[in-house]
Simulated assay, not measured.
Amino acid sequence: MAEVIHFDESALHIDGPVAEFLHQRPQTRNAMSMVLRDDYARMIDWVARDLSIRALILTGEGGSFCSGGDVKGMQQRLGNPDPAVNSPDATRRRLEDSHRWLTPLRELDVPVIAAVDGGAFGAGFSLALQADFILASSRAVFAMAFARMGAVPDYGALHTLPRIVGLANAKDLMLTGRRVGAEEGRALGFVHAIHAPEALPPAARAFAQKLAQGPREAAAMTKRLLNRSFETDYAAMCTFEAYAQGVAMHTPYHAEAAARFAKGEPPAYDWDKPASGQ
């Protein structure tokens, strides 16, 4: 039976092995408010503790993924004379506090899918890049809009974006702040697939359901190793690989897969096998 956990500006829908986190502030195009940040921290803790969840979808309500930082909140802070609220150090602390949940989001043991319909601007684009896959609607628009506000890209984008699109393309997107459609996003490599707006939600759920059939432990370790592969030398990565394989090949999932192979049975997880009904 499906379960819904309501937070302050969002909700987590859990249906079997798939959880879907929905931004529910469409009047602001789902801006990244301080409240939504706290919702993320609570949601990630929930998903990390519930081992029945095998895939997570991030998405937005009302035709927008996330419009970026809460500009009204920024204006209020800039008018506040309290240095605990409005100072370089206060800004640094707020951003470092965001990584209290952004880092665990990136390191979740389960695959994370950003289903982007409409705008993903500034921090919203950065947030989508923390996912393992971005599925976009045909009307999705991405922009590293920080330059328009005289700000530096944040939410980890200075790390994630150049590793996906290359340094030259990252400079283009970050220094211009220009808008990028779904097709260009796919050409640059950060959009995995494009769907019609009405088809995006079911397509994201079907994609998540398929990923959820895979090996939880092996997928988790593969994610962790890949996330460190650009900063790790070859010898160290080979050592990590050996330790991870030692764990993976002693899991029940591997034992069952090996038994099926020995019997000539098809694997339980076969991405190329059409889904039932296709």
Rank of each mutant, 00 (worst) to 15 (best):
V18T: 15
V18R: 14
A19W: 00
A19C: 10
A19K: 01
A19H: 06
A19F: 02
E20P: 09
E20N: 14
E20H: 12
E20L: 10
F21E: 05
F21Q: 06
L22V: 15
L22D: 10
L22W: 15
L22P: 08
L22R: 14
L22E: 12
H23T: 07
H23F: 13
H23K: 09
H23C: 10
H23G: 07
Q24A: 12
Q24R: 13
Q24V: 12
Q24W: 12
R25V: 07
R25S: 10
P26M: 02
P26W: 04
P26V: 01
P26G: 01
P26Q: 04
P26L: 01
P26F: 04
Q27P: 08
Q27A: 14
Q27L: 13
T28I: 08
T28Y: 10
T28L: 11
T28Q: 10
T28P: 08
T28C: 05
T28D: 09
T28V: 08
R29L: 05
R29V: 00
N30T: 02
N30D: 09
N30W: 14
A31V: 09
A31G: 08
A31E: 03
A31D: 01
M32F: 10
M32A: 10
M32N: 10
M32S: 05
M32C: 08
M32Y: 05
M32G: 05
S33W: 04
S33G: 07
S33N: 01
S33K: 02
S33C: 05
S33Y: 03
S33P: 03
M34P: 07
M34N: 11
M34D: 13
M34L: 15
V35N: 06
V35H: 11
V35M: 12
L36H: 04
L36F: 11
L36E: 01
L36N: 02
R37H: 06
R37Y: 05
D38G: 14
D38L: 11
D38E: 15
D39N: 06
D39G: 06
D39Q: 04
D39A: 06
Y40M: 13
Y40D: 07
Y40K: 08
Y40H: 15
A41R: 15
A41L: 15
R42V: 05
R42Q: 09
R42P: 02
R42G: 04
R42D: 06
M43D: 03
M43V: 10
M43R: 03
M43S: 04
M43A: 09
M43N: 03
M43Q: 06
I44F: 12
I44T: 02
I44L: 07
I44E: 00
I44V: 14
I44C: 01
D45A: 15
D45W: 06
D45P: 04
D45L: 11
D45Q: 14
D45F: 11
W46Q: 09
W46I: 03
W46S: 03
W46A: 09
W46R: 11
W46K: 09
W46F: 12
V47C: 09
V47R: 03
V47P: 03
V47A: 07
V47D: 01
V47W: 02
A48M: 06
A48H: 06
A48S: 12
R49V: 10
D50I: 00
D50K: 09
D50Q: 11
D50T: 02
D50C: 05
D50E: 12
L51V: 15
L51F: 11
L51P: 07
L51G: 11
L51C: 10
S52I: 03
S52C: 11
S52D: 14
S52Q: 14
I53R: 02
R54H: 01
R54P: 00
R54A: 01
